[in-house]
Nucleic acid binder design. Sequence first.
DNA 1: AGGCCTATGCTTAGACC
DNA 2: TGGTCTAAGCATAGGCC
Lengths: 114, 114
Amino acid sequence: MKKTSRGRRRIAMEAIENAAARQVCFSKRRAGVFKKAAELSVLCGAEIAVLAFSPSGKPFFFGHPSVDSVLAHFFSAWPAPPRPHHPLAGAPVQALGREESQLAELLEEERRRK
Amino acid sequence: MKKTSRGRRRIAMEAIENAAARQVCFSKRRAGVFKKAAELSVLCGAEIAVLAFSPSGKPFFFGHPSVDSVLAHFFSAWPAPPRPHHPLAGAPVQALGREESQLAELLEEERRRK
DNA sequence: AGGCCTATGCTTAGACC
DNA sequence: TGGTCTAAGCATAGGCC
């Protein structure tokens, strides 16, 4: 049978010009980064959050125990002036742009899972 | 000469009990995750932020173009009620706990580098 | 955008400094 | 906590679905 792949090839660590290739690379590597972050949290019980925007502007995130809690920990440093515990809490989805409402939905899903 | 290492061994994907080993694992893997995140931003020009707390509570972070900008993008979804552009901006370091002041210093350093 | 597959480059457990 | 070194486990470029 025909050899269909030459296997992994080394690529230069510079911006990928081709938009399609860049998007594919983002998808694969984003998955890799998120997996590594998840493993880190499991193995070491560490709090970690990853927020990323794809080249096309689509938001992705990961958080352990949750994005919310990590950001809260991050912000807890500041003596809270009167503001919601978390800027995302209770925000009206209809007030957001398309990209943002997706994010809000995803965050909602994450909350429900807990 | 004596063989001093048996090389990499597979480990179970579960919490590491030994505190010392857990800390070492965190250090190595944190570096790995941050490197991957950096590569992702370079290759795909993607915005990405990683916030992590070591088992000992020490904060680490990475952001491209900066932690600030990614969080700003993340929060830009919310029609800003009267609050600072970024919760971290201008916070008095002396008001923070030890861990938090370290974080503030590091964020300051990051700002200066730009 | 995410899956599958292969060949191969990269990451990292373990031991020591 | 962060380097160094070795050997072996794992991630991923490229091609196709």
